[in-house]
């Protein structure tokens, strides 16, 4: 299933839990969604750079297995944005459920 516009929300949420690099974020999305949420992993990096450009996340360098990795963490602005977007998401899915009912 394609994530469409939901990728930035998932990135912010995962980085709020724990800073990490692109591969970790991509793996977490696939693992937690049990492979249902699928996306081209290469497009994760432009999205990370875009969020960084908007000041919602910041990059830093970290050593991992003897290699320098570019990792990301949430900024204060990103935390506020995440709270607001989660509230909006809850409203959105709540409204959808009111119409669709229990589809599980």
């Amino acid at each position: 299933m394609n994530i469409k516009g939901g990728l930035p929300l998932l990135i912010l949420h995962l980085l709020a839990e724990q800073p990490g690099h692109g591969y970790q974020i991509a793996s977490e999305i696939k693992r937690r969604s049990e492979g249902v949420l699928d996306f081209a992993e290469g497009t994760l990096y432009p999205m990370l750079h875009s969020l960084e450009g908007q000041g919602l996340i910041e990059a830093y360098e970290s050593q991992e297995k003897g290699r320098t990795r570019r990792c990301y963490r949430l900024t204060d602005a990103g935390r506020k944005s995440l709270a607001s977007e989660r509230a909006e998401w809850a409203t959105y899915t709540g409204a959808m459920n009111l119409i669709l009912g229990d589809v599980s």
Binding site: A40, E41, G42, M47, H49
Partner: peptide, 20 residues
């Protein structure tokens, strides 16, 4: 294959870095 289309990634990177 998991990385996806290189052209699509290129367009998205251009948007992120040159678009603004």
């Amino acid at each position: 294959d998991a990385l996806g289309s290189a052209s699509q990634v290129n367009r998205a990177l251009r948007d992120a870095h040159l678009g603004r």
